[in-house]
Design a protein around this nucleic acid. Structure first.
Lengths: 154, 154
DNA sequence: AGATAATACTTAACATGTTAAATTTATCTG
DNA sequence: CAGATAAATTTAACATGTTAAGTATTATCT
């Protein structure tokens, strides 16, 4: 079905048949469905991701938040500034460990999430209807396995 | 095996069990293996992607290149400036259509690709050995289906 | 042919990605 | 307990992502 280049020695794969590009293209294809909603409400993809994570986990330190939202620490610092200025998050210092920054959603932030949740869920359902729930589930499982395989093992 | 949240109404999925984040995490996990090599040779991930595509397709216009490398036009404009200044690519105007910019690898650019190819291929093989060739192949197939399902249909 | 729309880029402006260095606070060692 | 180390962020600098606006060139339409 798919042309498999014979890669006996140390040659490069066809770019389109490569994990980095394939994963990037897949993500772009999915995000194309969400971008209109985010743009309409003036939040970037990353800001929304941070708020989604905070909505799930409550109050957490910056490192944990960065890891969960797949955002690097320096980016998170800037994003926090933006979200705090907009009144969507509350930032404080950890009294137990003065190095840590603690963050949580503000009431306004929670309302914002609730306001967009239905439209966001509908978009995801639209995507599911095109791909199929089982297929998405399988893909997510495959990715989980990939992550386990690539991390923490020899 | 995996906890499936009951999502009868219009609620948000668990972030970690969502296509945008899962695909992003997978990509990051893979790129972590390549970044040291790229950093060692002072090329960014995107610059390398552009050169990889050019190596495959020869001389092409900017739009095609941008699409193949998953890079937006404005980013490509800047990347071209960088790569041209470094002598890795040659840029020219399409005589048949004055709007188009044509690009191809320079001899120096081709040599650069050849120099990094073995190490890059070894890294990919390392990744394959951890995940398994068939599993990767399956994943790539699943992604192709996802791309077809999401594009150009109703 | 001439006005108009469509293409293909390019610029501009702001947000984020990425790495390295700096800062502040904790922890560890002797 | 003082000095060295480590940990958690932040800052800085440059590259790219992203959208909107601007430019030049080509295609279209009457």
């Amino acid at each position: 079905m798919t042309k498999q280049p014979s890669r006996a020695g140390l040659e490069l794969s066809q770019t389109q048949r490569t994990l980095p590009i394939a994963l990037l293209r897949a993500r772009e294809a999915v995000m194309d469905y969400f971008r209109p909603l985010l743009a309409e409400h003036d939040v970037t993809e990353q800001q929304w991701r941070v708020m989604r994570v905070l909505d799930e986990v409550g109050t957490v330190d910056a490192s944990f938040l960065a890891r969960q939202a797949c955002i690097l620490a320096p980016s998170l610092t800037r994003i926090m500034r933006t979200l705090e200025a907009r009144g969507f998050v509350e930032v404080s210092r950890d009294t137990a460990d003065g190095r840590r920054t603690l963050v949580c959603l503000s009431e306004e932030g929670r309302q914002f999430i609730r306001k967009l949740a239905p439209a966001s869920a509908r978009i995801y359902q639209d995507i599911e209807s095109k791909i199929g729930c089982e297929r998405i589930s399988t893909l997510l499982d495959e990715i989980e396995i990939l992550l386990e395989s690539l991390s923490s093992e020899s």
